[in-house]
Design a protein around this nucleic acid. Structure first.
Lengths: 222, 222
DNA sequence: GACTCAAAAATTATCTATAATTTTAAAAGG
DNA sequence: CCTTTTAAAATTATAGATAATTTTTGAGTC
C-alpha cells in the first residue's frame, strides 16, 4: 500500500503549479517567484526551479534568464495551433490504438461521453472529455506520442477554462458517438477522420474582462 | 556585439549533454552522475539538475526518483513512432509554411539538398538534411509545433548516428527535389504528401556490436 | 505633474553543506 | 563456489548562504 510514485518535491510542485495555471488561478503573464513558491511548499527554491523547467517544457510557463519565470500567455493563434496539432497527433494515435480496442474500453468511453453530456459545469465536462480521448488513444502504446498529446490537452483545458469562466450549457456530443460507432464497426479511417475534425472545433464565448469590457474568448471544445 | 542569448549554466550544460547523447558519445542506459558532470563544467550540481529536467522533457534522458538519471534507450518501435510523429507534424507545418515561402528560401533549401547529396559522412548529411527541413517549415510561424519538431529531429539524429557509425554512401535525394518542385509550382498538398512519406522512410544498416555480433540497426533517413 | 536618475529592496542564479538513499564491495554462511 | 547479509562508499535530493542582477521606490529636476 506504499504510495511512492513519482514523488520528489519538484514533481509535486510542478503538478500543483500546472494545475493552477490550467485552472486559471494564476493569470497569464503573472510572475512565478521561486522564493515565495518555495516558502508556500515549505521547501527550498532548488526543487522549485526544477519544477519551473518542467512547466517550461510543457509550454505552461516561460523563463527568461535572470528575469524569472512567468505564466505563458496565449491567443487565438495558439488555440488554433494546439487544435491542429491535436488533430494530427490524435488521429495518428487512434489509427494505432484501433486494433487494440476492446468492447470494455469502448463501453467505458461511451460512459465518459454520457458523463460529459450530463456535466453541469465546464470543469466536469473537461474531465470527462479528456477521459474519453485518453481511453480510446492510450492503447496505441506509443509513450512519446501520448506524452505530447497530454501536454496538448493541458493547453486545451487552459484555453477552455479561460473562455468558459461561467455559464456552461449541456450539449449532446454527437462526434464522440460517431467515433465510437465507427470504431465498433471496424471503420478505423472514418473514426480517425471524425476525430480529426472534432478536435478542431473551436467554440467562442463572451467574457467580461476586469475592466467591464466584453470581449470574445476562444477554446477547443472537443 | 554582446552574445548573451539563453546563457545560464543550466542551459549550456543541457545543450552540451544533448549533443553528446545525440552523437552517441554517451551510450543508451549510461548513468548521468550529477556531481561528475558538475565537476566537469566547473559548476555545482544545482544547474546540472535543471539541465537533466530539460533532457528528460526532450526524451533524451530518463529520471527515476532517488535512482538518478540515465540516457534514454530506444528500439525499432520508437524509431517508427518518431517517424510517424514527424510525418504528421511536419506535413502540418508545411501546409502552413507554404504560403510564406519565398524563392530565396526555396533556393536555400535546394542548396541544403545539394550539400546533403555531397556529404562525405553521416554527420554532414544530417546537418544538411535538418537544415532543409527547418528552412521549409520555419515560416509556418507556429512556435509550439516547431519546438516539437525540433525534439523529434534530435531523436531522429540520434537513431541515425547510432545506426550509421561508419560507412556512409552518397545518394541523390529525389524526395527533397520533388518537394521543392511541388512547392515552386504551388502544389502544396502534393509537397506535404511527399514529405509525409519521405520522413517515414526507414533505412537499415548492419552494425558490429562490441561482442562482435552483427545486428541490424534502423534509422529515419529523411 | 511627468521624467530622470540613484539608492534600496527584491529576486535570480549559483555554491557549499548535509541528510537520506542507493549502489558497491566485502564478509559470512550454506 | 554461489548466495545472502552487512558495512562502506558513492550518489541523490534538499536546505541554507551568497554574489550578481533586476525591479521598485523616491528624491530631485524640468
Amino acid at each position: 500500500m506504499a504510495k511512492e510514485r513519482d514523488d520528489t518535491i519538484a514533481s509535486r510542485i510542478s503538478r500543483v503549479l500546472a494545475d493552477r495555471i490550467i485552472r486559471g488561478e494564476i493569470a497569464p503573464d503573472a510572475r512565478l517567484r521561486q522564493d515565495h513558491i518555495a516558502e508556500e511548499f515549505g521547501a527550498s527554491h532548488v526543487p522549485v526551479r526544477e519544477a519551473f523547467r518542467r512547466l517550461e517544457a510543457q509550454g505552461l510557463a516561460i523563463s527568461e534568464p535572470r528575469r524569472g519565470v512567468r505564466v505563458a500567455s496565449f491567443d487565438l493563434k495558439e488555440v488554433r495551433e494546439v487544435a491542429e496539432m491535436r488533430a494530427a497527433l490524435e488521429s495518428l494515435a487512434l489509427k494505432h490504438a484501433a486494433q487494440h480496442l476492446t468492447p470494455a474500453i469502448l463501453d467505458a468511453a461511451e460512459e465518459a461521453t454520457r458523463e460529459g453530456d450530463a456535466a453541469a459545469d465546464v470543469r466536469a465536462w473537461e474531465e470527462a472529455n479528456r477521459r474519453f480521448h485518453r481511453l480510446i488513444l492510450a492503447p496505441c502504446g506509443m509513450a512519446r506520442l501520448l506524452a505530447s498529446i497530454d501536454d496538448l490537452h493541458a493547453a486545451s483545458a487552459r484555453f477552455l477554462f479561460s473562455a468558459w469562466q461561467s455559464g456552461w450549457e449541456k450539449r449532446t456530443d454527437h462526434d464522440h458517438r460517431a467515433i465510437l460507432s465507427a470504431l465498433r464497426q471496424g471503420r478505423t479511417e472514418e473514426a480517425a477522420s471524425i476525430l480529426q475534425k472534432h478536435v478542431q472545433w473551436i467554440g467562442r464565448a463572451p467574457v467580461r474582462t476586469p475592466s467591464g469590457v466584453t470581449r470574445e474568448a476562444f477554446a477547443i471544445v472537443g
